[in-house]
């Protein structure tokens, strides 16, 4: 049987998570290749619309990462992100796409955490299966 390989859109902020991804690469840590990383300058750049659009265009899951609260390069951008993502996750429950959107803080020094986050999320989406928006 062919294992389902989910397509995941991952947003990384330029200052922490993207550097974290670089650290994983430099450290040669292995992690699943299901993610398509999109670099943004700050996680607060990510509008709820982006996530809905990604799901509509066939992503099975959307993973949003950013700096830890207090570490934001733009002082408090990620505070807005946290609020917005909480709402998007709530909206997903109503839309019947529960568990397909996740927010995680990953700093530039947390290579292993980056790997764990991606691995866990990929497994979570694999268990959920194909997005109902792709099945049609």
């Amino acid at each position: 049987m062919v294992v389902f390989e989910p397509k995941i859109v991952m947003f990384c902020c330029n200052w922490c998570s993207y550097a974290g991804a670089d650290l994983v690469g430099v450290g040669r840590l292995q992690y699943p290749t299901n993610t398509r990383v999109i670099r943004v300058m700050c996680s607060s750049r990510i509008q709820p619309t982006f996530i809905l659009q990604a799901l509509k265009d066939g992503a099975d899951g959307v993973l949003v990462t950013g700096c830890h609260i207090g570490d934001c390069h733009y002082i408090d951008g990620n505070v807005y992100t946290e609020e917005r993502m909480k709402n998007v996750v709530d909206a997903m429950k109503l839309l019947g796409l529960e568990g397909r959107v996740h927010l995680e803080w990953v700093s530039a020094s947390e290579g292993p955490k980056f790997r764990e986050t991606v691995t866990e999320f990929v497994e979570q989406i694999r268990a959920l299966g194909l997005s109902p928006l792709r099945a049609e």
């Binding site: 509008q47 709820p48 619309t49 809905l52 509509k56 429950k93 109503l94 839309l95 019947g96 109902p132």
Partner: peptide
């Protein structure tokens, strides 16, 4: 609001078991 409500409505047309209230 960056068209978020239009996107939501569009998703609702495609998702049979979507809801508007709990």
């Amino acid at each position: 609001h960056k068209g978020v409500f239009t996107e939501l409505a569009d998703l609702m047309t495609q998702l049979g078991n979507s809801k508007t209230t709990l």
